[in-house]
Amino acid sequence: MSDARSAILAKLRTNRDAHPVTPPPSDTTVLAEKRWAPEERLPRIRRLMEAVHTEFLEATEADWSVVVREFLVREGAATLLYAPATPDGATLASAFPPSPPRGEGRGEGNLTLVPYDRPVEAFKERLFEGIDAGLTSTLGAIAETGSLILWPSVEEPRLLSLVPHIHVALLRADALYDTFWQAMRDNRWAEGMPTNALLISGPSKTADIEQTLAYGVHGPKRLIVVVIR
């Protein structure tokens, strides 16, 4: 289809050159001016995300894994998918005794820890039909819109935050940005984007049936943000 390519580009070039466009400069002051005092960011993120049914847990670096475990046990989750090769994954595993209830990985009470450690093809059915919760890290959150930033990686696969019914996300309270724009500038995203980068602002939702909000249409039904101070 290289014919189409050259035809399209040639036509665009001819048409543009016949009537060039002079765009006005892109004035980003309006984005730069969206600022919140550091102490206002987290409450704002919380308010915006809670408005779309996100739940929040408070924890410290020392106890978050226990907080997560106890929460999920309380909620009756039986399986928690995690990324074993990440530092957070190692911390999480340490909160689970190595004697599993069903002879797999680690467990506590009825909650089994399941590592996401093989290609999805070897794992699809289990992933879709046998996992209650998934835990991921975040790169921080955005005050303007109440959004988590996720950069899945080799160690932390993409579907961890999508397929399990409950997504538990760790948010360090010192990694807060004012805007999406600020986050991508401060971290020079344009110099190298990962395979997939995400903003997540709540559990999956839809209003396609008569504009009635319903949560958990395709992705997670619940999003739990664990704020680590």
């Binding site: 080799v154 395979t195 997939n196 980068a197 995400l198």
Partner: peptide
């Protein structure tokens, strides 16, 4: 809505 639930940025196939 201030933002959609997901902003999905895809830059490459599986590496």
């Amino acid at each position: 809505q201030p933002i959609t639930t997901y902003v999905n940025m895809i830059t490459s196939p599986r590496k």
